[in-house]
C-alpha cells in the first residue's frame, strides 16, 4: 500500500526545509454526516520527524487540523542523501511511517 505520507526535504547546505502532506480524514468529532449523525473523532495525534536518530520536530495535533494535513518547518544540519524518518499515530491507535531522502 502506498504510504499516507508524502515528504519533500531539500537542503541548501545550511538548513533543510521539510514539507509533509499526509492523507488522513482528521475528523474532529463535531461534524454531522448527511444523515445527521455525528462523525466520530478520527485524527492524527502525534507526528514525529527524526534525523540521524534524533527527533527534529514533533507535532501534537487535535481535530482542528485540516483534513489531509500539511506542515512545513526547517532544521539545521541535514545533508543531501540523509534519511528522514517520519511517523504518525492517530486517536484510534493506527500508525504509518516512511523514510525520505533529503534532496
Amino acid at each position: 500500500m502506498a504510504s499516507s505520507i508524502r515528504v519533500r526535504a531539500t537542503s541548501n547546505g545550511e538548513t533543510t526545509e521539510v514539507q509533509a502532506l499526509i492523507q488522513h480524514p482528521m475528523d474532529s468529532g463535531f461534524v454531522k454526516d448527511a444523515k445527521g449523525e455525528i462523525i466520530p473523532p478520527h485524527f492524527i495525534q502525534q507526528l514525529t520527524f527524526e534525523h540521524d536518530g534524533k527527533p527534529i520536530f514533533l507535532a501534537n495535533w487535535g481535530g482542528g487540523v485540516s483534513k489531509d494535513p500539511y506542515v512545513k518547518f526547517a532544521f539545521k544540519g541535514g545533508k543531501k542523501g540523509d534519511d528522514l524518518k517520519i511517523s504518525w499515530v492517530d486517536n484510534k491507535g493506527a500508525t504509518d511511517s516512511t523514510t525520505a531522502k533529503i534532496q
Binding site: S28, K54, F57, N60, G63, V65, P69, V71, K72, F73
Partner: peptide
Amino acid sequence: IALIASYRIPDGTLPSVSNRIK
C-alpha cells in the same frame, strides 16, 4: 476545542512552522 496544534522545536530546528487549520 481551542487548541489546534502544538509543535515541539528541538535544538537545531528553526522556530518557524506552517500548517493548515480548521
